[in-house]
Amino acid sequence: MAYKYDPTARYAKTHDWARVEGDLVACGISDYAQHALSDVVYIELPDVGTTITQGQVYSTVESVKAAEEVYAPVSGEIVEVNEALADAPELLNSDPYGAWIIKVRPSDLSELDSLMDAAAYEAFVQEEEKGGH
């Protein structure tokens, strides 16, 4: 499968992406993640003001297939939630890099260094495809 990658984002092994936007970091799920999920029907959005830690579950995405947890790629305070997803969660399928889920005021930008760039993530996905399904 050929998946899309946002070259300006960085990626966690949990298939979550983080993208610096001004002094905030937008977070979402990758094209590979949405493809594996199949049609998304619902997302449990977190509250603005919640503090999250890198690797922590901050949302649950439900597809026709299953409920999948979404992990924070960076630590910080959630300052914006993409309310458009409440009414149109399928945007996660059609535009995974446009459909950010939260914007975070990061507490430690150096955490981004622990994430993969697009090329490294693409290689990671290809390995997953070979090994798994």
Binding site: M1, H35, S38, D39, V64, K65
Partner: peptide
């Protein structure tokens, strides 16, 4: 097949 890529369950 649980679904076909390019269409999907819905």
């Amino acid at each position: 097949p649980v679904q076909y890529d390019g269409t999907g369950p819905t």
